[in-house]
Amino acid sequence: MSIKIDILGVGISAPGIPDWNGLRAVLDGEPLSSEHELPQTSLLSPRERRRAPATVRLSFAAAEQACAMAEISPDRPAAVFSSAMGDAELADYMCRTLAECSQPLSPTRFHNSVHNAAAGYWSIGTGAFADVTAVSGWNDSAVAGLIEASTRAATGSGPVLLVVYDDYGQGPLTRVWPVRQPFSAALLISAPSTKNHSLAHLALRASNARNQHPDLPAALLERMADNPAARLLPLLALLAGTGPAAITMAAECGSGLHIEKIRA
């Protein structure tokens, strides 16, 4: 039994990859730079932008691109924010502040430390009353997010935004979170419909097979090894390619997905 979904929009933001066209250029052989200019979101008020943690800016950059490409207002879709670690910077802040006992925790930084902070700010910023959820699968966060978003799209009534993101580590916490390059990517997913202008039509089924995908440029493989969110790259390459193709996104723990691109 497979799940069938349409991909209506894509977004990506990472060092050297400012957007979808940037990724296509790298896939076509352009060199990958380390420059990362994160755009400022227009969805939050200046006050909220000051209060929001760094994961908001990182995840929103990809999410807004995917909504724009799909021509879907950001407040409409249900949304799934998937991240291996959540906010490593705030985890470092809290552990450090608690260890030093020198000052009380900042209430704002504490409530921003929840794993669903980016999801919460997305609901606040877009005015979305639909469900905006937050998941994690550690190294399997890309495929876990895709499973949650595609089962929602297949069993629900509307489009679903998937945002997969993880930021770099800092402080002593780099011992458990050594990620060096931030990465975020987003997909706008819907149940199949002839009315959709879809980028691709996919069939997904659970699979416990190993990772399988065509060769990617070495620089992108490095990103996949560095940051769990970048493990979405084989799927993005599948979407960028022409013609039918199939990949397997394996999970380290539990089942992953076999993904077949049936048509563009």
Partner: peptide
């Protein structure tokens, strides 16, 4: 130390191999 630790720990302890996912809201 990561949000998924207990889901993975429980899945491995119980020998489950279907989709393994953490919800953290």
């Amino acid at each position: 130390h990561n949000p998924h630790t207990s889901t993975r720990f429980v899945a491995e302890t119980l020998g489950l191999a279907g989709p393994v996912m953490t919800i953290s809201t």
